[in-house]
């Protein structure tokens, strides 16, 4: 794999390759380039995951002609599909090297060490929502119980925006979550459940169930279940399978036609070698 990546970089098949490099025993998202080609020797494939395609989107926004190589698990590939559908990246400009992937209702047979259930505390199980439950179990809560449990989880939110910032398919130039007519600003506790529901609605037909948001959430809010719910509704109502379909969602909260410019919400940082 390393040889292939090196030859891509040398021959100019790609301008950059996005993967992970081992630094002090930690896999760090890394942008490999021809100028520092020896770094490819430290490339690692490990359970570590990051939304590399988000970095790709940011790069393409700066330089629309850039050709990008990327280490891709199945979730990365689903995200790439969504980004193609929404005109954030062009399929011709991306080449991938495949790596192992994670189970999801969007792809049944797979493995991903990240998703091995961690321990969920007894109190959270009693009053909140166990992040490892299946969506059916959460849907089965009665109205009051469901409300209490979700609101318990949302009350923990510290509005760090980690969920938005990590999400590979969050690319809007102007974010509704920053819009103070839509979501109240100012104090903590944030405006709940509006903050979470606004984000959920925007994820219908977009969320590719990678779980990175939940992984990023410092408060362990079961965000993945919430977005599975909106995707489930999209699937039931429209038979639309996010991340595998090459068409735009038949139903879009953002408007019927996509007119967003490919502009990231913040300048490229972090991935610079």
């Amino acid at each position: 794999m390393k040889e292939q990546i090196k030859s891509w970089l040398e021959q100019g098949t790609v301008d950059v390759f996005l993967g992970y490099r081992e630094v002090d025993h930690h896999p760090i998202p890394w942008c490999f380039t021809q100028e520092a080609i020896e770094e490819v020797d430290d490339l690692v494939v490990s359970p570590a995951r990051y939304s590399l395609e988000k970095i790709a989107t940011h790069m393409a926004a700066e330089d629309p002609d850039i050709r990008i190589g990327m280490l891709a698990r199945d979730c990365n590939n689903r995200a790439l599909n969504v980004l193609y559908v929404w005109n954030q990246l062009r399929p011709e400009q991306v080449v991938t090297v495949e790596a192992n992937c994670c189970p999801s209702p969007l792809k049944e047979h797979a493995d991903c060490s990240y998703l091995e259930p961690g321990t969920v505390g007894a109190y959270k199980k009693a009053v909140g929502i166990d992040n490892h439950l299946r969506l059916e179990a959460v849907e089965a809560y009665g109205p009051e119980e469901g409300r209490n449990r979700w609101m318990y989880e949302f009350q923990k939110c510290i509005k760090c925006y980690g969920c938005r910032n990590i999400c590979p398919v969050c690319f809007c130039r102007e974010c509704s979550l920053d819009h103070d007519d839509l979501v109240g600003t100012g104090p903590l506790l944030p405006d709940i459940p509006i903050f979470h529901l606004v984000r959920a609605v925007h994820m219908a037909g977009r969320c590719i169930d990678c779980g990175l948001c939940e992984d990023a959430c410092p408060m362990d809010i079961p965000l993945r279940l919430l977005y599975q719910k909106v995707n489930r509704i999209a699937m039931d109502l429209f038979d639309y399978r996010t991340g595998t379909s090459g068409d735009q969602p038949p139903f879009s909260i953002l408007g019927d036609r996509v007119t967003l410019e490919p502009k990231p919400i913040q300048p490229v940082t972090g991935a610079e070698a």
Partner: peptide, 13 residues
């Protein structure tokens, strides 16, 4: 759209 909204609000009863 309305069905979608109803379904989502269903989480909260």
């Amino acid at each position: 759209r309305i069905t979608f909204l109803q379904e989502l609000l269903g989480l909260f009863g």
